[in-house]
């Protein structure tokens, strides 16, 4: 029983990471109907930046904040330079561009920072076992921080005029413009925010999975599964989906398929969602534009 509880709690901890990346993906999908396949690699790049800062002597939390801010800039830049020109191009074009970006960032990470697997410090320590030894200090701290980030994002969208304008621009860009909203600026902000959320997730997961250029590829897969499970057009659903995928992954990994096949769990979840409930748990029916 304790074993199961342990799997669930560490599932929630990794679920928090998946939820963040799911949210980043869904935010962009909702606004542009494009999937940013490079979302994971962008987060990995951010994590490398954070590690470089930490090694240069910058205190952990300062490095965290600087990285998140820089990543926001990276997101805005990607939107301006790569996304804007292919906005209305066929799906293939945007997939090609984002796969290209994935390759470039992945290769640059390896080139600049090396392919060796690196340890990443955790800011969370505790002298005593937490919750009766059920969770590690990092798991607890990481989950807490991620949940705070997600709540802040939620509050931003729910309560601020800018958040409202971003939602409006995503749902109905023409009408948003007629309300005086600068839709293209909102898209840039959305990309920046998504990259910033991804960066936070990358820094939080790196102490667990260690840092190398391919750190996020598996996580991106779970995030896809989480987003589909929650509903691709529902940010709230994507977050819940991410947590569910985290727990399922751990339980399946521990008791059913073994840790060797953990990534296959993501594939199975994706196929199962598409078969059983393609709109996801919280999504609306898929709308087709003619």
């Amino acid at each position: 029983m304790n074993g199961l509880l342990h799997q669930i709690s560490s599932g929630i901890a990794s679920g928090a990471i998946y939820a963040s990346v799911s949210l980043a993906l869904v935010m962009i999908y909702q606004a542009t109907h494009h999937v940013n396949f490079a979302q994971g690699e962008m987060a990995t790049l951010s994590t490398f930046v954070a590690l470089t800062l930490i090694h240069a002597g910058v205190p952990f939390w300062a490095a965290f904040v600087i990285t998140v801010v820089l990543s926001f800039g990276l997101g805005v830049a990607v939107e301006r330079v790569l996304m804007r020109p292919v906005m209305n191009a066929p799906v293939l074009t945007s997939v090609g561009v984002f796969i290209g970006l994935l390759l470039v960032i992945n290769a640059l990470d390896g080139w600049i920072f090396g392919f060796t697997i690196k340890a990443f410090p955790s800011p969370f320590h505790s002298a005593h076992p937490l919750l009766g030894g059920l969770v590690s200090p990092h798991e607890l701290g990481e989950t807490g921080l991620t949940v705070v980030v997600l709540l802040l994002v939620w509050a931003f969208f729910r309560f601020t005029p800018l958040g409202l304008a971003m939602r409006a621009a995503a749902h109905n860009p023409v009408s948003a413009r007629l309300c005086g909203v600068n839709v293209s600026r909102m898209l840039g902000l959305g990309w920046g925010l998504a990259a910033a959320i991804g960066a936070a997730a990358g820094i939080m997961v790196a102490p667990v999975v260690f840092l190398d250029p391919n750190m996020m590829s598996g996580i991106l897969l779970y995030a896809f599964a989480g987003a589909l499970l929650g509903g691709v057009d529902n940010p709230f659903g994507a977050v819940i989906g991410g947590f569910i995928v985290g727990v399922l992954e751990n339980i399946f990994g521990a008791y059913i398929v073994g840790t060797e096949l953990k990534l296959t769990v993501a594939l199975i979840i994706i196929v199962a969602v598409l078969l059983v409930k393609p709109t996801g748990l919280f999504g609306r029916a898929v709308q087709v534009r003619v």
Binding site: H33, V91, F224, A266, P278, V286, V288
Partner: peptide
């Protein structure tokens, strides 16, 4: 399952397949 839905679903599913197969 993926092609009943169109859009990017096949790209996503096959992306997952490609990552999972070596495992």
């Amino acid at each position: 399952p993926a092609l009943r839905l169109g859009g990017l679903y096949l790209a996503l599913t096959t992306f997952a397949l490609a990552v999972a197969v070596p495992q």
